[in-house]
Computed example of a mutant assay.
Amino acid sequence: MMLLPWSEIETVLLDMDGTLLDLHFDNYFWLEYLPHCYCKAYKVSYSQAKALIDQECKKVQGTLDWYCLDYWTKLLGLPIIELKQDIANRIQWRKNTELFLARINEMGKQVVLITNAHPSSLALKRSKVNLDPWFDTILSAHDYGYPKESQIFWARLQQQIGFNPEKTLFIDDSLSVLKSAQEYKIKYIYTVLEPDTQQKPQKNNNEFGIIKDYANCF
């Protein structure tokens, strides 16, 4: 990736899962552990449980319900947050993330975490990795009632923290979210090459800059 123009950047907006934290925890939970728990609870096969969860996920993809643990707890009849706690040892930083956060704090940037994660999921992550010291503000899209895929989210975020899109850097691993930020005219937009370090790198199609290692951002 090219060296970022730090002298022109005032605000750094950062996603959490897949951007700061390894997405392996979330992928493992939704794609493997939750289907296992469902088939055990309802006496169906693993493939049936996985197919049902995949089908329900597709129905709400891109909406706040996709991220809402209350929604999934009610729909599946399983204690989602408690199940997440069972495998919370898998929650971990991505390589050199804390180094990156330390450097941008030293530069005096406004640093804000913005995530679509449900508040309970965010609280779990905060209890396992030391997120709070690095950020001026930590926000869940649930606070606004709209996901980052919505332009309303960005308008409300700007109203709350007062960022200038022309002087803002945004890093996220979701293509739909990156396109939403682009529509809102955020100038510096980057994605992450390997959100899940145990999976193959994701395709980018050269739409956005790519971060392979946070240590190379300076």
Rank of each mutant, 00 (worst) to 15 (best):
L157G: 03
L124Y: 03
S150E: 09
K212E: 14
L69G: 09
N89Q: 14
A155M: 12
K109C: 11
K167G: 03
F170I: 08
E10A: 11
C68G: 08
N216V: 01
L75Q: 14
P147K: 12
N27V: 04
E82G: 09
Q92V: 09
I9Y: 03
Y67G: 10
I80E: 12
D172G: 03
M16S: 11
L76D: 08
L122I: 02
Y144M: 05
C68Y: 05
A88T: 10
Q199P: 06
D172N: 02
W72D: 12
S176W: 06
S121N: 13
L169I: 05
S176F: 07
L99N: 03
D65P: 08
T197F: 02
H24C: 01
L4V: 09
V112R: 03
I161L: 07
A123T: 01
E183C: 07
P147V: 10
I114C: 14
H36Y: 11
L34Q: 08
Y184P: 03
Y42C: 03
S127Y: 02
I91V: 08
L83D: 14
L101P: 15
I81H: 11
I189M: 03
S120R: 14
L99P: 02
W134V: 00
Q158M: 10
L14K: 03
K128F: 01
V129H: 00
K40W: 05
K43H: 15
A51E: 15
L69S: 13
Q55V: 10
K167N: 11
L131G: 04
Y144P: 00
A215W: 11
A102W: 06
P195S: 00
Y214P: 11
F153A: 14
D22Y: 02
N164M: 03
N116A: 06
L20D: 02
M1A: 06
W134Q: 01
Y67I: 05
D54A: 14
Q61W: 11
A41W: 00
S121F: 05
N204I: 14
I91E: 12
V60W: 07
F100I: 05
Y214M: 06
D86Q: 14
I53N: 13
Y184V: 01
A88E: 15
L69C: 13
L52Y: 15
I114P: 01
D17Q: 12
L83E: 10
K43D: 14
K125F: 06
L178E: 01
P165H: 01
Y28K: 03
F153C: 04
